[in-house]
């Protein structure tokens, strides 16, 4: 049975337990950073940062809005990156959980193609091994009946893991409640992804790639037709 993770950003305090917990579990090496005038650091996802809490602040009239978005792979139900991959066994989808996994064979794949195929701009490359890197839903932990590390770390009730059907139900119920205070609240691409975000405001106010705007996720067929290229350009320009 496929699994899903519900990320309720209205409960996120950006404590970054998930960001650090993920990194610790994965034993990723440190990334040198600088203070650039924001709490968001590292500035972007990277090969050693597959979970990143994004911060965005807005002043609306007299009200400050500060949004937190724990970004990572959405584990698409029908992953366009898998469709874009030309390396057999490089990108696999675990039948038991639905987790989308990049194996070491992705070293032979083309970053730009794969990243361009992703509506959420997730994939990155390890400069040393050339392997493509992103969140693997902590498949090792799930198989051992443990929670994914980000979900485990979250004490705020902002992350829940479970059967897709249950998680969808939970997400819908929470949306209902949140909408009373925040009418613009929505669930992002809930039918297409396993990592289901609830945001209280327009998704773009959280993060440029919070939601997939194109007919998404792309099917293998549309990918083969080369429809993913505009997305790739978008990702590239954003990467700057």
């Amino acid at each position: 049975m496929p699994k899903a993770i519900f990320i309720d950003t209205t409960h996120c305090t950006a404590c970054r337990g998930c960001q650090v917990g993920c990194k610790e579990w994965k034993n990723y090496p440190p990334v040198p950073t600088k203070q650039l005038g924001t709490h968001q650091n590292p500035p972007d996802l990277g090969p050693y940062n597959v979970k990143l809490v994004r911060f965005s602040e807005h002043l609306e009239g007299d009200t400050v809005r500060w949004y937190f978005f724990p970004d990572c792979c959405r584990h698409c139900v029908d992953p366009p990156c898998k469709g874009a991959s030309s390396v057999e066994g490089g990108i696999i989808q675990d039948a038991a959980t639905g987790a989308v996994i990049y194996t070491e064979l992705t070293a032979k794949d083309d970053l730009e193609t794969i990243r361009g195929a992703c509506p959420y701009d997730i994939p990155r490359q390890d400069p040393k091994t050339k392997r493509l890197i992103k969140c693997d839903m902590c498949i090792d932990r799930i198989q051992a009946n443990l929670l994914p590390m980000c979900v485990k770390s979250c004490a705020m009730g902002a992350m829940s893991f479970g059967e897709r059907a249950d998680i969808l139900k939970q997400a819908e119920a929470r949306l209902e409640a949140v909408k009373k205070e925040f009418p613009k609240a929505s669930l992002l691409n809930k039918d297409e992804v396993a990592m289901i975000y609830l945001v209280a405001d327009e998704p773009a106010k959280y993060y440029k790639f919070a939601v997939a705007e194109a007919p998404s996720p792309m099917t293998r067929k549309s990918l083969l037709a080369g429809v993913f290229s505009p997305l790739r350009r978008m990702a590239k320009s954003m990467q700057g």
Partner: peptide, 18 residues
């Protein structure tokens, strides 16, 4: 650890151990 009731499939090799 006992991996109860989970069909490991191709991810097994990937997640070789906890």
């Amino acid at each position: 650890l006992s991996r109860l009731g989970i069909d490991l499939g191709p991810a097994q090799a990937y997640a070789a151990g906890l």
